[in-house]
Structures are given as structure tokens and as C-alpha cells.
């Protein structure tokens, strides 16, 4: 198996405020397998459950988010462990050493009243004893140096740094222990285009050097096109298509994926960009059958009643759409 295997994961937000009970089905039956040493992209519109998925993958499940079913199995070379059934201190052991994160809104993930090196020390100290302060500072300077960051940032406060710099510092923080898996949630969203490119470059280089698996979540297909090896497309809490990046970009099968690709700007292409009609569904009350059917231009009767299964159609190319399954079914 790969480094991460997710089996039929379901995670809902369940709230009860002044008697108004609500269940938001943010993740509703996701199965996926991620291999070692690859950049796995997850794409989708906002509020399709991407961020919730990342939270569950990193074991940060807190009420009102509740895992209703399924497994998240990691394999760091010594058998598989389900991150959802770990004790608190077992979880703490694998965090940062094996799994680390780069969060959405990285602008505010650094403690505003603490100098950068102290934040680094807090994270390091949680996993190994720091014998000598001098050695620790040298290591940190080396680490930052490798990522092309000036050593002065260690003595700075977060408010001294620009947005791009903060994001680089966060990446440095997330890669101190050369973790096997890095979960990156919208790492470039708040940055301007030029800084974005630099940050992506940095991620790519780190991956090349440390050979980790990066799970990259962003709504921005251009970023995926740039960096991902494989891409999964999420829609309304489910994966609708998954394939090698090239296949997704050039040979997509799901109508939703095709819409996403069409909205990408291409050099030399002057045709009008059509945005997807309609709005993303409300996950508290999702549509029946295929959740994309109200917005789909090729909708059929069956789409309204049954949920299309995610089936393999080609070389590790999976899709969940009756258009495809019918064709391939007919062909057989």
C-alpha cells in the first residue's frame, strides 16, 4: 500500500444551537490512496469539504466536527496506524516528526507576541530535548539557509515579516523534522502571484530533497497544474475524479472537472471563459443522487436518484459519473 489510505471516510459537523440541530456532511464517503514521494493535489470549489478533509487527515478533529465512519491509515514503514484511533500522546509523537501541516491562512499561524526562534523552539522541544541553545540556533540557521531565508528572521516577530516571508517561515517550520507527509491547505491563496510562484518553487524543491509526500489542497487549478503529480477533484464532500495530473488536465471525464479545467486561462486562447452555472450545494441539505446533477449540463434520470460509484476507467484513472460508467459498461 501507499503511505496513506483513506477508507470510506465520513465526517460531519453536528451543531445544536438553541435547539436548531444541523448536520453538515462535509465529508461523505471518501476513499483514496496516496503513494510515497508524490505531490497529491486536491481541488474543488470553496466549501466542498477540502479543508475539513485536511483536518481529519492531520488528526485535528474537534467538536462540532465528528468522524462518523471510516479509517485514515498511515504507513510510516512500521505497519499501518489509524490516526483516528490513536491516543493523545501517540498522536503527539507522530505529529511534526511524521506528519506536519501548512495551514490555510498562514498569515496568522505564528504567535504574534513570540519571536520566530521561540516558536521554532516550542515546536522542536515538543519532540526532542534541546541540549544546547547554541546548537539549536545553528541548526535552525542552517535549515533556514537551505530554504534561502535570511537568518535574521529568527530574531524577528511575525509582524516584521511580509506575507510571503511568513509563509516561507511556516514552510521551514513544517519541514524541520523532514516529515514523511506534509499537508498543505491553500498555501498560496493569500499571496500575490509573484510571491506565489516563489513559495510553490520552495515546496517543490523541498519535496525533491526530503522525498516527502505532499498533500496539497487548493481551489486554484493553475497551482495544481504547476506542481501536482496526481490530482483528485472534490465536489460536495466526495471525490468525483482522480488521476495523474496530465490525465486530469487533458483527458478529464467528469463534467465538473471539465468545467474546472475550462476556467483555467491558457496562453493564446482567446475564447470566452464560461463559469459553472449555479452555486455549490448546501452540505446541510445536499441534492439527492449525484450531487453535481443540478448544475450538470448532461444530466440524466439516473443521476437524480442514484449515487454514481467511483470506478477505475484507465491507468489509475477513477471517475464517479454515470456518463462514463454507462459507456464503459455498454462497451463490455
Amino acid at each position: 500500500m501507499g503511505i496513506l489510505k483513506v477508507e470510506n471516510l465520513k465526517a460531519y459537523y453536528m451543531t445544536d444551537v438553541y435547539g436548531t440541530k444541523r448536520t453538515v456532511r462535509a465529508i461523505d464517503g471518501i476513499s483514496v490512496e496516496i503513494k510515497e514521494n508524490e505531490i497529491f493535489g486536491i481541488a474543488g470549489e470553496s466549501s466542498c469539504g477540502k479543508t475539513t478533509f485536511m483536518k481529519v487527515l492531520s488528526g485535528a478533529v474537534k467538536p462540532p466536527l465528528t468522524v462518523v465512519g471510516g479509517k485514515v491509515l498511515y504507513n510510516f514503514g512500521n505497519g499501518s496506524l489509524d490516526i483516528l484511533s490513536l491516543q493523545k500522546d501517540e498522536l503527539r509523537k507522530i505529529r511534526w516528526k511524521s506528519i506536519s501541516c501548512i495551514l490555510q491562512g498562514s498569515m496568522s499561524v505564528l504567535n504574534p507576541v513570540r519571536k520566530i526562534y521561540k516558536t521554532f523552539r516550542d515546536f522542536v522541544e515538543a519532540h526532542q530535548k534541546i541540549e544546547k541553545k547554541g546548537d539549536f540556533m545553528r541548526q535552525m540557521r542552517d535549515h533556514l539557509g537551505k530554504l534561502g531565508l535570511p537568518r535574521e528572521v529568527l530574531k524577528a516577530y511575525p509582524h516584521h515579516l511580509s506575507g510571503g516571508m511568513k509563509q516561507r517561515v511556516t514552510i521551514a517550520l513544517a519541514t524541520i523534522f523532514k516529515p514523511s507527509v506534509i499537508i498543505a491547505d491553500e498555501p498560496t491563496t493569500a499571496l500575490d502571484v509573484i510571491v506565489q510562484r516563489g513559495v510553490l518553487q520552495l515546496l517543490k524543491e523541498i519535496q525533491k530533497e526530503q522525498k516527502n509526500t505532499i498533500i496539497l489542497v487548493t481551489h486554484d487549478m493553475a497551482v495544481h497544474a504547476n506542481i501536482a503529480d496526481r490530482i483528485a477533484i472534490m465536489y460536495a464532500g466526495r471525490i468525483v475524479e482522480e488521476a495523474k495530473a496530465g490525465d486530469i488536465l487533458e483527458n478529464s471525464l467528469h463534467p465538473y472537472t471539465q468545467h474546472l479545467i475550462d476556467s483555467l486561462p491558457m496562453i493564446g486562447d482567446k475564447s470566452h471563459r464560461v463559469s459553472i452555472p449555479g452555486v455549490p450545494p448546501n452540505l446541510a441539505n445536499p441534492p439527492s443522487g449525484c450531487r453535481f446533477h443540478p448544475r450538470c449540463s448532461s444530466v440524466m434520470g439516473i443521476c437524480r436518484e442514484e449515487v454514481p460509484p467511483l470506478i477505475e476507467v484507465g491507468d489509475r484513472h477513477k471517475v464517479a459519473c454515470f456518463l462514463v460508467s454507462k459507456e464503459s459498461g455498454d462497451g463490455k
Binding site: 451543531t15 444551537v17 438553541y18 436548531t20 444541523r22 446541510a284
Partner: peptide, 13 residues
């Protein structure tokens, strides 16, 4: 607490 925007968001959905 009832009029707190965070609670209100949860309340209205």
C-alpha cells in the same frame, strides 16, 4: 451570547 455574530451564524446556518 445570543447576538454574538459567531452564535448567530451557527443559529441561522
Amino acid at each position: 451570547q445570543y447576538i454574538d455574530p459567531r452564535t448567530r451564524l451557527l443559529r441561522m446556518g
